[in-house]
Design a protein around this nucleic acid. Structure first.
Lengths: 346, 346
DNA sequence: GTTGGCACTCGACTGTCAGGAGTGCTAACA
DNA sequence: TGTTAGCACTCCTGACAGTCGAGTGCCAAC
C-alpha cells in the first residue's frame, strides 16, 4: 500500500488534492502549473499525472476532464503529505473562545459542542454522549408520582442525570423510600453502572435477599429501573451543511444524506467503532464500512474523564474534506470536552 | 372572503383540490371529467374552471397547463368542502396501537410522538414539550458533585425532570442540603414554577431573609438554579419526508427546508403561536407568517394535563397536504398525549 | 528528461423542431 | 340559455445536431 513516490510526484499529488479540496472539480495539468510554481510545463505534469493515475492515486471522470484524487490518493495525502501541526496557543485560545459551557448540564454541553464543531469546520458535527452504563454511580433518589408510579433519578459521579418512571409497590411510603435510597447509596457508591447491574442480579439470588425485606425491595426497584436503559444520546449538528457540498447536490443524494443523518442508529454504530481507539481516527470513503454512506469521510475522537464516562465526537463531510483544518479541531475539541467533564475548567 | 359557490363549482373545486393533493400536478379539464363522473364535457368544466380562476380559487402556471388551487382555493376547501369526520373506534384503536410509551420518560415520549405522527401522516412531525415554567413544583433534590458544584434536580408534578449544575458555597454539607431541600419542598409544594420564581424573588427581599440563614441559603440556591431556564425542547421527526414532496424537489428548496427545520428557533415561534388556542389549528401557506417558510401548511394542537403542563404538537408539510388525513391524526394524538400525561392510560 | 505542437475526445451549452397536453373561443345544438 | 364539439393557439418537453472549450495523449524536437 505504501508505495514510494518521488518528490515531484508527491508535490503534484499534493497540489491536486489541495486544489480539489477547494474546487471540487477535476484538476487539469495547466491549472496545476498556473496555480503552483513547479517550473514545469503542463506536458510534464501530464506525464506525472498519467503515472499517478496508473498507480491508482488519481482517476479521470472522462477522457477530456482533469483528474481527481481517488480514495487511495486521499489516503496517501493524509498519511504522507499532510502534516497536522499542533495548534498554537493563540489558535487554541481562538477555538476555545467559541465554546461557552457555563452552567450547562451534560445534554446542553453535548449539543453545544456539536454546534461549534460544525460551525468551525463547516461540516456536520456528531457528538455521542457518554453511555450511562460507562459512568460511575453517585447517588439515587426517588420521587413518588401519582397513580403508584415512582420516578427514579440516578446521578453519576460526573454529574450526568438519568431518570426513569417505574411502577412500584404502592405500599411503599416516603420513609421506606428514604431507607431504600440510603441503603443503595451506601452499597453502590463508586461502582460503575455496569457493575451495579451485575451486583444487583447477583444479590437478588442470595440467601439474604429472601428474608431481608428492605434489601429485597431496594434491589428489585433498582433492578427495574436500571434494566433496558434508554438508548444512546446522539447529537447531529449542521446537517444542512452537508447539502452545501457540490458532491451531494442532486436531490436524490440530498434525500439519502438527510435520511441517513436522521436515522441515528447508523451514526451511533459508526461512532461506536472508534470507541476503543486512542486519539483522532480518520475514516476515508469506503473505510466507513456502511452501505448507506457513500463519498463521506469521518473524523472522530474519544473524550472521557477519569471517572470512566466515555463519549465520542466527530465531524462528517465529503471525502474531499479539508483534513488539515478538521483534524486539529476534532482533536482539540475532544481534549477540551474531556477537561470540561473533569470540571478542570469551566 | 366567504364567497358563494354553486354546487357544481364546489364539486369541481373539490375534485381539483383532491386530485392535486395526490398528483401535485396541474389538473386539466379532461382529467377531471375522466376521473369524476359529473356528466359534463371538458368544455363545460373549462368554463367553470375559468370562473373559479377569475374568483381567485385557481390559477394556471402557464397558458396551456391545467389549473392548480390557490391558497384561497385550499382555504375554501378546508372551510367549506372538507368534512373531517371523527375517527371511528376502530380507527382510533389502530392509531393508538402505533404508540408505545411504556416506561418512557417525558423526552422519550415526545420523541416517540413525533416519530409516529410523522410516520402516520407521511409529513414532518413537530412536538414541543411542555415548558418547564408551566409545570407544577413537586420536589427538589441536591447532589453534591466534585469541585464545589451542586447538581439541582427539580421534579414537576407530572414527572418532568429538569436539572442544572450550579456553583455553591462549599461550606454547605450534606445535612445543610437536606434541611434546605426539606424547607423548599415544604414551602414550594404545589406551586407553578413561574410562581415559585416570583415567590423567591419576593422573599429574598423580606426582612426575615436577613437573619434566617437557612432560608436565605435555600432561596439563593434555588434562585440561582431556576434563573435562565434551559430553552424549550423541540423534537422534529421525519424531516426527510419534506424532501420527498415534489414541490420541494430542487436542491435550493431542499437546502432551505432543512436549514429551517434545523434552526429550531423558527419552529418554536411557530408552535408558540397556537399556544393559546383551543383544538386543532390550521395554517395554510402564507398564514404561516414567517419569511423562511414558503409553500408549507402547518396543523397543530395543544396538549396538556390538569397540572398545567402544556405543550404543542403538529405536522408540517406542503400546502398541498392531505388535510383530511392529517387533521384527525393531530387531533387524536394531542388528546392521547394529554391522557398519557395524566397517566390515565399507559 | 523536458517541452511545444497537434489531433482527438467529451461534456456543456445552444438552437431548432416536432409532439402533446391544455386552453379559449366560437358556433351549433337541445 | 346552458351545453358541447371543433379548432386554432400557446407553451412545455424531449430529442437531436452543432459548436465551443478544456483537457488529454502522443510524438517529435530540443
Amino acid at each position: 500500500m505504501a508505495e514510494e513516490l518521488n518528490e515531484r510526484s508527491q508535490n503534484i499529488l499534493e497540489a491536486i488534492v489541495e486544489d480539489y479540496i477547494v474546487s471540487a472539480e477535476p484538476i487539469g495539468s495547466r491549472a496545476i502549473t498556473r496555480r503552483h510554481s513547479f517550473n514545469l510545463s503542463p506536458a510534464s505534469v501530464r506525464n506525472v499525472m498519467s503515472d499517478l493515475e496508473e498507480m491508482g492515486f488519481l482517476c479521470s471522470p472522462h477522457t477530456s476532464a482533469g483528474r481527481i484524487p481517488t480514495e487511495k490518493g486521499f489516503h496517501y495525502y493524509i498519511d504522507s503529505l499532510l502534516q497536522v501541526r499542533d495548534l498554537s496557543k493563540q489558535e487554541e485560545a481562538r477555538l476555545r473562545k467559541n465554546y461557552r459551557f457555563k452552567g450547562m448540564k451534560m445534554e446542553d454541553i453535548m449539543q453545544e459542542v456539536g454546534r461549534v464543531m460544525s460551525g468551525l469546520s463547516n461540516y456536520t458535527g456528531l457528538v455521542m454522549a457518554p453511555k450511562f452504563a460507562s459512568t460511575v454511580f453517585r447517588q439515587i433518589e426517588f420521587v413518588r408520582l401519582s397513580h403508584g408510579r415512582l420516578l427514579v433519578i440516578y446521578v453519576s459521579e460526573s454529574g450526568m442525570v438519568q431518570n426513569k418512571v417505574i411502577k412500584a409497590d404502592p405500599s411503599l411510603d416516603q420513609r421506606d423510600l428514604e431507607q431504600i435510597s440510603n441503603y443503595l447509596n451506601r452499597e453502590l457508591n463508586g461502582m460503575s453502572i455496569q457493575a451495579v447491574r451485575e451486583k444487583i442480579a447477583l444479590e437478588l439470588q442470595t440467601e439474604r435477599a429472601r428474608y431481608d425485606q428492605l434489601q429485597k425491595r431496594a434491589l428489585s426497584i433498582s433492578s427495574a429501573a436500571l434494566q433496558e436503559e434508554s438508548e444512546e444520546l446522539l447529537f447531529v449538528s449542521g446537517a444542512s451543511r452537508m447539502l452545501e457540498q457540490p458532491e451531494f447536490s442532486t436531490p436524490e443524494q440530498m434525500k439519502r444524506i438527510i435520511q441517513t443523518l436522521e436515522s441515528k442508529k447508523v451514526l451511533i454504530d459508526l461512532l461506536d467503532r472508534s470507541y476503543d481507539a486512542q486519539g483522532v481516527q480518520i475514516f476515508v470513503g469506503s473505510q466507513i464500512q456502511n452501505s448507506e454512506i457513500h463519498g463521506c469521510s469521518l473524523i472522530t475522537a474519544k473524550f472521557s474523564n477519569k471517572k470512566g464516562a466515555v463519549g465520542t465526537l466527530g465531524v462528517i463531510g465529503p471525502v474531499r474534506m479539508d483534513y488539515s483544518q478538521v483534524i486539529p479541531i476534532v482533536d482539540f475539541t475532544a481534549q477540551l470536552v474531556s477537561r470540561i467533564m473533569e470540571r478542570e475548567i469551566e
